[in-house]
Nucleic acid binder design. Structure first.
Lengths: 170, 170
DNA sequence: TATTGACAGTTCTAAAATAGAACTTATGGT
DNA sequence: ACCATAAGTTCTATTTTAGAACTGTCAATA
């Protein structure tokens, strides 16, 4: 697969993966949410090569996730800050952090704790249904084709059949 | 950076990225949640090379996200199914899909719609605070070092200082 | 009995991405 | 004049990935 075509796939996950679906992009975004903004600071805190960092920042700007704003003239220097589109990635970052907190921490415990300024308490993120407010689980969700669905699924008929039977048998 | 060491980083995001932070793993997991379970079905629906697919499945099994269970003897064949640890990735997948739905869809609209069986309605996922139930935004969250925090941050002093000032100035 | 097909991989080479270090350009300070 | 800061760019060596072909096991079929 050419990764350039990923963003045109008729799948919202694939398109998002085109933007954030590599290791460095997610780590760069974590730093953004921790208020890192400058080239050398990203480089120092992540240990990423300068080449890759330049490349990834360019990509994130191209996708409208980050914006370059000048913080000094002569020589002209820029900071990278999150756009609204970038800020909207917060639930993704938080759910990734939360999964790591639950399943990947060692004996020392969590590296970071999160305080919700609104209520003043340490919290975990919970994903709920926009309609009824109940926490979501994979098994309580049913998927329907939407208006942008592909006509012919790339999933083989045999696989589709098996998946369908499996879904019906639950 | 050697990616083998990523899972030992004192950062829950980095550790999770070690598991799911590459393009194919996320796409494979999407298929898992759509009830794809077999090698050739993954291969056919994703177009991934067999080599990479074998490698990624092995990795996901090693991390305890998938489990191989036999579905026939002679010849012995296995299916890959999500463990509880794997099912817990659902909020990550859903938040990625949702961001794509908001920011990456084309004129045709969403490829998939989600129905919450519990309430019967089409929904979007919303991330809320476990303590007060309010929707979360990056700006309403404050970060504290936890018990597993690294002693000396890899973030340079200069960057830390700038970040701190930025945080205080809000 | 020989042949075909399904399934789950493995092996091979060429192309692409990444790591790691050095280099460039512009400017300000001592 | 010399050094430091900042934000990149360029270079080669290594690693990863793409793409296709091949292997092994068994069941069903001719």
């Amino acid at each position: 697969m050419k990764w350039d075509t990923l963003e045109e796939e008729p799948c919202s996950l694939a398109r998002t993966v085109a933007v954030i679906g590599d290791r460095w992009s997610l780590l760069i975004l974590r730093e953004c949410f921790l208020r890192i903004r400058r080239f050398d600071d990203f480089q120092a805190s992540l240990g990423i090569t300068r080449h890759l960092l330049a490349d990834r920042l360019k990509k994130l700007v191209r996708f409208g996730v980050l914006r370059k704003i000048p913080y000094q003239e002569a020589p002209k220097r820029y900071e990278y800050i999150l756009t609204q589109k970038g800020l909207d990635l917060y639930p993704i970052i938080m759910s990734i952090v939360h999964w790591g907190n639950i399943h990947m921490v060692d004996a020392r415990g969590r590296p970071l704790l999160h305080e919700h300024k609104t209520c003043g308490k340490m919290f975990d993120p919970v994903m709920v249904c926009s309609e009824c407010g109940e926490p979501l689980s994979a098994k309580a969700v049913h998927v329907h084709p939407g208006p942008g669905a592909r006509k012919s699924s790339p999933v083989h008929a045999s696989a589709r059949e098996r998946a369908k039977r499996a879904a019906e048998s639950t």
